[in-house]
Each structure stands twice: as structure tokens, then as C-alpha cells.
């Protein structure tokens, strides 16, 4: 149950508040019902993301997809660090399972292969 809740972004404290007691104090039936409820929410969350899963391990998966969509919609400036140490800044204009296209501040668009990326974060130290 805690694992399911964590996947939904619900911490232990929030879960306890919602169910009214620590998970360990639930009866077997209550635990089963809450598990069912959390599993249902998890399925609903997944079903809001309609896409074809990428085939290779570096592909954009569910959580990263949600994060990229959020940043794209917000027009957030991101800084990407690649394997060779190069960095690129830009706003996300689109992505596929294996590539992310950004528009750099000067207007140029560049497509980065996911496999070449080590990490990315908001530019300018913004959390």
C-alpha cells in the first residue's frame, strides 16, 4: 500500500491523514479496500497518458513524460548536460521516446538524443 501511495506521490503522513490511521492499524478488509482504491487511482493516472511505450531503455517513460509535458506547457527554460560535458539550454518544443527538441534562447532549434543526455534541470538555478 505504501509503495502504491508513493507511486501516486502520496507520502506516509498524507496517507495516514486520508485513511485516518496508520496503515498498519487497518483491518484486513480495510487494507484490501484501500489497496483497491489506490490501484484504481494509479490506473486512472496512467490512462491519462496516452502514448506508445518506447522500445529501448532510454525512452521517455511515464513520469518523465509528465514532467516534460509540464515544462513544455510552462515554457520553462531547461539546461541539458550531455555525456561529453556539453550543455544546451532551451524550452522544450517537442519530444519523442528517444529525442527531445528544444528552442534555444537565440531561436535555434536543436534535437537532443535521449541516449546522449546525462541529466537536465531548470536553467538559472530555479528549483
Amino acid at each position: 500500500m505504501l509503495g502504491l501511495a508513493t507511486r501516486l506521490g502520496i507520502g506516509r503522513a498524507a496517507l495516514e491523514e486520508e485513511i485516518g490511521k496508520p496503515p498498519e492499524a487497518l483491518t484486513q478488509k480495510e487494507a484490501r479496500d484501500w489497496n483497491r482504491e489506490l490501484a484504481k487511482r494509479s490506473t486512472e493516472q496512467k490512462s491519462t497518458i496516452s502514448r506508445k511505450r518506447g522500445y529501448l531503455p532510454e525512452s521517455v517513460d511515464s513520469f518523465e513524460l509528465a514532467y516534460l509535458l509540464e515544462q513544455k506547457d510552462a515554457g520553462a527554460l531547461l539546461r541539458f548536460t550531455l555525456f561529453d560535458g556539453q550543455t544546451f539550454e532551451g524550452v522544450v518544443v517537442g519530444f519523442s521516446p528517444y529525442q527531445i527538441t528544444i528552442r534555444q534562447p537565440e531561436g535555434d532549434e536543436i534535437t537532443l538524443n535521449k541516449l546522449a543526455i546525462v541529466y537536465y534541470r531548470k536553467a538559472g538555478g530555479e528549483a
Partner: peptide
């Protein structure tokens, strides 16, 4: 997830998406 993870760096700093 299967491709990346989100990390809140220790001691502050911007949220980072690290490729697995």
C-alpha cells in the same frame, strides 16, 4: 520510471531529471 528519475539535490539546487 524505466528511463529516468527525479532528484531533489541535497543542500538545495534545482530539481534534476537524471537519465538512468
Amino acid at each position: 520510471d524505466l528511463g529516468a528519475f527525479g532528484l531533489e539535490p541535497e543542500g538545495g539546487g534545482p530539481f534534476t531529471v537524471v537519465q538512468r
